[in-house]
Amino acid sequence: MILADSFRVAWIDLCFIRRNLSSVLITSLVGPLLYLVAFGYGLGKGMTVDGFDYMSFMIPGIIALTTLTACFSTTAVKVMVQRTYFQSFDELFLCSMNPAAIVLGKAYGGMVRSLISCAILYVVGLLITPDLRFTLSAVLMILLASLTYSLIGVVAGMLSNSHLTMNMITALIITPMTFLCGTLFSVDALPGFAQAILYALPLTHTTDCIRSAMLGTGFEWIGFAVTMVYFIGTFVICYYLMVKGKR
C-alpha cells in the first residue's frame, strides 16, 4: 500500500528523468569519470593501497561517492524547487497520501539516477581492472546507500528555501564528504582524531562496505549497519518534516 503509493508520488520525478535522461546521466558521470582518469591513470599509476593496485582501490570509492553526489543533488534540488518555486509540493498534501509514501517517493528520482550511473561505472570498473568482482552484496549496499543519500537530499530540500542555502549545504557538508570519506585514499593513512571524525560520517562506512564487497574481501557488516542507522534516522526526520514542517 505505502510502497504502491510511493511510486505514485515518484511518478512525475521519473517523468522528468525520462525526458532528460541523457543530460541527467552526463552530469552525474562526467565527474566520476574525470576522477578515474586523473587519479587512476594519472596520479595513482603503479601505486598500491591496502594490497590492491590504486585503480582497483579507487573505483569502488568512486561508485560510493557517486551514490552520494547523484542522489543528494537530485532530490535536494527537486524538493526545494517544487516547494518554493513550482509550489507543486502542496499537491502531495491534497490527496490522502501517507507521509511515509511521500518520503519514499521523493527519494526514487535520486535513486534511479544513482543506480544507472553506478551500473555504468561498475561495468567500466569490471572491464578495466581484473581485481573487481560483481557481487550481490555490493549491489545491496549501493541500493541502501542510494536510498539513504536520497533521503538526506530530501531533508536538505525541505529545510532550504533557495539555491543559495542549497549551495551552502553542498559546499559545507557534501563536498568535504566526497573527498575525505576514504573514497580516493585510505582513511587509515590519517591521524587518529581525523579517523574518528570520518568514521562518524556515513560515506566512510558506505565506501568501506562497497569496496570490500567489490574486491571480494568479505562484507563489512559494520558499514552496512551504520548506513542502515543513517537511513532510519533520516527517514524519521523526513517523516517528521512532512507532518510538522512548515511546508
Binding site: 512525475i12 517523468c15 522528468f16 525526458r19 517544487q82 513550482f86 509550489q87 507543486s88 509540493f89 502542496d90 499537491e91 498534501f93 491534497l94 490527496c95 490522502s96 497520501m97 501517507n98 507521509p99 512532512m242 507532518v243
Partner: peptide, 23 residues
Amino acid sequence: DVSSPAKEDIGIIQQHISLDKDV
C-alpha cells in the same frame, strides 16, 4: 490526520499556480 480520506473530497486551485513546470 495528514492522510485523512476526507482530503479526497476537496480540490484547490491556488493563487500561485502549483504545477511542475518542467514536464
